[in-house]
Each structure stands twice: as C-alpha cells, then as structure tokens.
Design a protein around this nucleic acid. Structure first.
Length: 243
DNA sequence: GAGCTACTATCCTGACGGGT
DNA sequence: ACCCGTCAGGATAGTAGCTC
C-alpha cells in the first residue's frame, strides 16, 4: 500500500478521541482528524513525531488525517485503523496469506445476519464454505509482542461472539490481527486491558475460530515513509491458560 | 451526585430515488 | 438498465447537559 503524500509534525496533544493538535515545522498549529478510536497507548504521547495526510476535502472540518507515529527509536506505527482492512485485503489479493489463498471473491463490510451487525470481510469461492473475517489493527506493543485490545472493548467482544456463532453455523470464521507497528515479533491478547476479550478469544480458538496475526514492513524513501505492506505471519501466544 | 442521553468527526458501504 | 447523488447506519470514548 502506498501512502498518500505525507507531512511531518510534532504532536501537541490528542483530545475528544478524534482530534489532535500538532505543531508544524514552521511553528504554526494544525488540528488533525484522528481515525483511531482506541487508547493509542505508546503512540500518542505529546512531543511524538507524527505524519499526516491532507485530503484537500472542502466538506471536512479537519481535512488532514493523522496517519503515522514515529517512535523515538525510529519505528513507525500506523494509527489509521482504516488502513488495516485495506492492508489485509491487499495481502490476500497478492497471495501473501496462504491460509486464504483459495478464495476468489472478497467483499467488505458485509452484514453477517447476526444482530444487524457487519463483518469486515467476506471471502467466497464457489462451493467452499463462506469465510467471515474480522480485521483488528494492532498498535500496542510490549517488548516486541503486539497486544490487542488496548482498552476494554465490548464491541470487539461482540465481534468474537458473532464469529463463534458463524463458525457454529458452518462458516469459516477468522480473526485477523494486522500488526501496524514495526517490530512486532509475536502477538498475544491483552489480559490486562480486557480479560473478558482475552478469555473469549481463547474460547473462540478452542471452538474452531481461526486466529492469525501478521506483521508489516514500512517502505521509506530516506526518512520519508512511502508505504507499508503485510509481510509475514507471527505466532499467536495463548497466554490465558497460564494466568 | 448518579445515571442517562446526545453530541462530537469521519469514513465506508448499502439502500434508495431520480434522471437519462 | 445504468449512473449519480443523497442519506442512513455502524463504529468509537470523552464530554456536556439534562433528569431524578
């Protein structure tokens, strides 16, 4: 995935979930839209270098969107969660996800038939059972281990219950953790942030819901981020049974 | 003060209506 | 039938305002 043209700035503070004030290199201030509803632990600290895109939209009150955070060690984190779905779909298209290589048709944001909710991705291919997949973006990292969620999330608990239900109905059901943070070498659910979610994820795995975690690579032109792509799967650690 | 509701901003998809 | 524009729904957590 190629990024739109990005510009750098220094984060002043994030507020009201969707907004962030930044300081531009010329010293002026700008308010950005922040397309991440999570807690953004570790990637939204005042003083962080961030990269943003400009949609040039005349209808948006804040036409610029916060895309990346650059950590002190130079690692990049994509905080725009909408990129996760696109990355996952691109990876499937490019045959980078062998577990899903057998599907020809991809539909996004489809109704699952359960409680009027929607599933991120539906994969189909003729007589094969349809495959429902929820894509989760992972930006929280602790010692090279990607963690999800970064806060208590009843919404994601609901998604897991739906996937379990879909699997019990005979469909293939998948949770796809999309590592948007450079340096992820493994993945585990965050018991600290949401023990209920962690328990449910393990229950889902035990019942046959498939769980995959993928790491990404950022492309650069010098220091300038130009794009990113999912590269390889990383192990999913079942930490719940030990707690 | 506690609890509830509406609002905040944005994007994406699907549904729907109107015009060609 | 097809294209285009518009609107609703879903998702999110903090905050303000309202009621009890």
């Amino acid at each position: 995935m190629q990024f739109p043209s990005l510009k750098s700035a220094k984060l002043i503070h994030r507020y009201k979930r969707f907004m962030a004030d930044v300081e531009l290199p010329n010293g002026s201030q700008l308010t950005l839209h922040c397309a991440n509803t999570g807690k953004m632990t570790g990637c939204a600290d005042p003083g962080d270098t961030i990269w943003y895109s400009d949609s040039h939209s005349t209808t948006r009150e804040y036409p610029c969107s916060w895309e990346l955070t650059q950590l002190n060690n130079g690692d990049l984190v994509c905080i725009n969660t909408q990129r996760a779905n696109a990355l996952a779909i691109e990876a499937i298209h490019n045959h980078l996800v062998p577990e899903l290589d057998s599907y020809e048709h991809i539909v996004t944001n489809v109704k699952s038939g359960i409680e009027n909710s929607r599933i991120d991705v539906l994969l189909t291919n003729g007589p094969q059972p349809d495959c429902y997949m929820q894509v989760k973006s992972v930006t929280l990292v602790n010692n090279h281990t990607g963690m999800f969620p970064d806060t208590e999330t009843t919404r994601d608990q609901k998604h897991l219950r739906e996937l379990i239900e879909l699997h019990e109905k005979g469909y293939r059901a998948i949770v796809f953790f999309c590592g948007l943070h450079e340096g992820i070498e493994s993945f585990e659910p965050s018991i600290q942030n949401d023990p209920e979610y962690s328990s449910l994820l393990m229950e889902a795995m035990a019942k046959g819901v498939e769980v995959y975690a993928y790491a990404c690579k950022f492309m650069r032109d010098g220091q300038y981020p130009t794009g990113m792509q999912l590269t390889h799967t990383v192990p999913v650690i079942n930490n719940y049974k030990n707690k």
